Simulated scan of single mutants.
Amino acid sequence: MLKFLLALSMGVFCVSPLQAGDITPVMKSCVSAAKPARCEMWTKDFKAALEQAQKGDHGAQGIVAFCLSTGCHGSVTIDKVASCSWHLVIANSGAATVLDASNLRNTCRPMTPAEKDQARALSRDLVQKIYKRPMVATDQM
């Protein structure tokens, strides 16, 4: 877990979209992964983080965004729109840091305008669901 937090602190990379009403990412089978045991560990950790992220846990939201951008050792399908959406949720959490702002820019800026629009729509839904309030416009992407 310490290695993961270190990797998370180094930034997030780029990554395709979830439906606006669906915040459950596509989990992969670890059977064909290069390191199945590591993949299974990430799958378990990701599922726990997603559950906590949906309850407003800032750290868990960072893990979800990170895994959606990197695939977390093959355990999650890479989805750059969903990752960007979670970064926008983090920016709206009230607990965002300078690193979070950097991760938002690094993840979202390389996306097309259409992908950015999808990410904004999904994040609006997520912020409403998680925080029970409208999203604050934050266009650092």
Rank of each mutant, 00 (worst) to 15 (best):
L2M: 05
L5R: 11
V12S: 13
P17T: 12
P17E: 13
L18Q: 11
A20H: 05
K28S: 01
K28E: 02
K28P: 00
S29T: 12
C30I: 09
C30L: 09
A37E: 15
R38S: 14
W42P: 00
W42E: 03
T43G: 04
F46V: 01
A49S: 15
Q54I: 11
K55S: 10
D57P: 04
G59Q: 11
A60E: 03
V64Y: 00
S69K: 02
T70P: 01
C72G: 01
G74I: 06
V76Q: 02
I78C: 03
I78G: 00
D79S: 11
D79C: 07
W86Q: 09
H87G: 11
L88I: 13
V89W: 06
A91W: 04
N92G: 06
N92W: 00
N92K: 08
L99S: 15
D100I: 05
D100V: 07
N103W: 07
R105T: 07
C108Q: 05
P110A: 09
T112Q: 06
K116G: 05
D117V: 11
Q118E: 15
S123V: 14
R124F: 00
D125N: 15
L126T: 01
Q128A: 14
Q128W: 08
Y131H: 10
Y131N: 08
K132M: 10
K132E: 12
V136K: 13
A137R: 07
T138Y: 05
